[in-house]
């Protein structure tokens, strides 16, 4: 019995290693579809997907939309500022109204941690978490896993350090869960004020106070975006000081015993958490991450759309040729 995903994708914490591998293995052939002259397959023809974004996002929303369109689904984008949500409608009311128009899936980004789960328990449609508060960003975690597996050939035993504002980062949480389940060693590095108090309870192997130590230890760095408002909130003294202590620069990488793979979820603050010559350098896989994002989201949508075991009673193996 091969693993299935179930109705929703809400986090990586609750997925098994088999389910994670299923998504990554499914994403691999989906990459080729975006390289075809006709970048479209009919597998989700007739499905309607709503992208419900309560926070601004260009990259993630566009990536989901491309994934949906390349699978032939019909898509509607709802941005909060221009909707009746701005008039005070609750999340569940919004979703129920959408369901009354017979949708099949909701892709949701929300500033409140847990909002996608709350929604998933109350509607019939599949729910995909596109980032919720400081909880998780599962498809970003998956595309990071896929990119690392491609570039390094394996995840088992790979040493990955997440650098930056781990405390506020849903990307960091999805990475930690996903990497650990697939056998990688995970470390974090950042100012103590931006690491969660109980970071060790997430099962990380090391907590580095200096980025030089992280660079010496790791095979790959996942450099997080430093939200500029963290400075106003007093977590760090200044952007310049942050860059001086934690910035990933070429000079620092050149002292490493080996070449490191450099990931960044974007958007990049050049000269703050990462220097331009690193972001654009030969070991940066930042644009591969973006390419892989479409493939991984296609895989998730494909697996969720058909992955309702209760509907799959007619499954008979491959004998309907």
């Amino acid at each position: 019995m091969s693993p299935v995903l179930g109705k929703d994708l809400l986090d990586l914490e609750s997925l098994s290693a088999e389910q994670l591998r299923l998504i990554l293995d499914t994403a691999e052939p989906f990459k080729a579809i975006s390289e075809r002259a006709i970048k479209k397959v009919p597998v989700l023809r007739g499905k309607t997907i709503v992208n419900l974004f309560y926070e601004n996002s260009t990259r993630t929303r566009t990536s989901f939309e491309f994934a949906e369109k390349r699978l032939s689904a019909d898509t509607v984008n709802i941005a909060v500022a221009a909707s009746s949500i701005a008039k005070g409608e609750t999340l569940v009311d919004t979703a129920r109204n959408l369901e009354a128009m017979r949708i099949d899936m909701v892709v949701i980004r929300h500033p409140a941690s847990g909002a996608p789960r709350f929604l998933a328990q109350r509607i019939e449609s599949n729910v995909v978490n596109a980032g919720d508060g400081t909880h998780e960003h599962p498809t970003q975690g998956l595309l990071d896993l896929l990119t690392l597996r491609d570039k390094c050939g394996r995840l088992e035993g790979l040493k990955v350090c997440i650098v930056g504002d781990v405390m506020h980062s849903r990307v960091a949480r999805s990475n930690i869960w996903g990497l650990r389940k697939l056998g990688a060693e995970v470390a974090v590095c950042g100012p103590r004020s931006l690491l969660p108090a109980a970071i060790e309870s997430l099962g990380v192997h090391h907590v580095f106070a200096r980025v030089e130590q992280a660079i010496e230890w790791a095979d790959a760095l996942n450099v997080l975006r430093l939200q500029l408002e963290r400075m106003q909130a007093g977590y760090i003294p200044s952007l310049r000081e942050y860059n001086r202590v934690f910035g990933v620069s070429r000079a620092r990488l050149e002292r490493a015993p080996k070449d490191l793979v450099i990931l960044h979820p974007g958007p990049i603050n050049r000269g703050v958490e990462i220097d331009s010559d690193v972001a654009d350098g030969p070991h940066s896989v930042i644009l591969d991450q973006v390419t892989n994002g479409v493939a991984v989201r296609m895989a998730v949508l494909y697996l969720l759309a058909g992955g309702r075991p209760e509907l799959a009673t007619a499954a008979q193996g491959g004998d309907s040729r």
């Binding site: 293995d25 052939p29 579809i33 058909g306 499954a315 309907s320």
Partner: peptide, 19 residues
């Protein structure tokens, strides 16, 4: 696999090979 007409009844199948 991605052109089949039975995703709803049979569920997603693994993609076994390259196109």
């Amino acid at each position: 696999t991605l052109y089949r007409d039975d995703l709803q009844t049979v569920g997603p199948r693994p993609l076994v090979g390259a196109t």
